[in-house]
């Protein structure tokens, strides 16, 4: 492929990285054709940018680049563990957001008054036999 054809491909955005590197090399030469020589400032600019980026890149230490991945690697299991614990807790305690609730036939009611009443009923139910069987009150 001749240089003009390569240059056309370049402006069409069809060149590979290797072909672009070749084009930049051709453009640097003193015997470069006029069409490539005209592109020299543009290639020089790109070369400068590439050099600048390559100079900046090594400054980033590998552990710093890994930090984001490490954080994600730690946070994802932590989030999953949290979600699992919340699910497990929810399976046991159905109305987590309520300070008092009652579950009747599997239906949860975040009704504190009803919860109070039923709590009292349950307490009286368990208290009655102890009171009856041990009337002197010395049952504890």
């Amino acid at each position: 492929m001749n240089k003009d054809e390569l240059l056309r491909k370049y402006f069409e955005g069809e060149t590979t990285a290797e072909e672009e590197r070749l084009l930049r090399d051709y453009a640097r030469r003193d015997d470069a054709p006029a069409s490539l020589a005209d592109c020299r400032p543009m290639f020089a600019y790109f070369d400068g940018e590439i050099s600048r980026m390559e100079a900046v890149e090594p400054r980033r230490q590998p552990w710093k680049r890994m930090r984001r991945f490490a954080a994600a690697a730690c946070l994802i299991p932590a989030a999953l563990a949290g979600a699992w614990l919340a699910y497990r807790q929810a399976a046991t305690d159905p109305c987590l957001c309520s300070s008092g609730y009652v579950v009747i036939d599997g239906q949860c009611y975040a009704d504190t008054d009803r919860a109070r009443t039923l709590a009292l009923e349950a307490l009286q139910e368990v208290a009655t036999p102890l009171e009856t069987l041990l009337p002197d009150g010395d049952f504890f």
Partner: peptide, 18 residues
Amino acid sequence: RQYWKKKNVTMVELSREM
């Protein structure tokens, strides 16, 4: 855990605030 959501079962829970 095993019976709280079954039929004919009533479970009550009161937390510290109450």
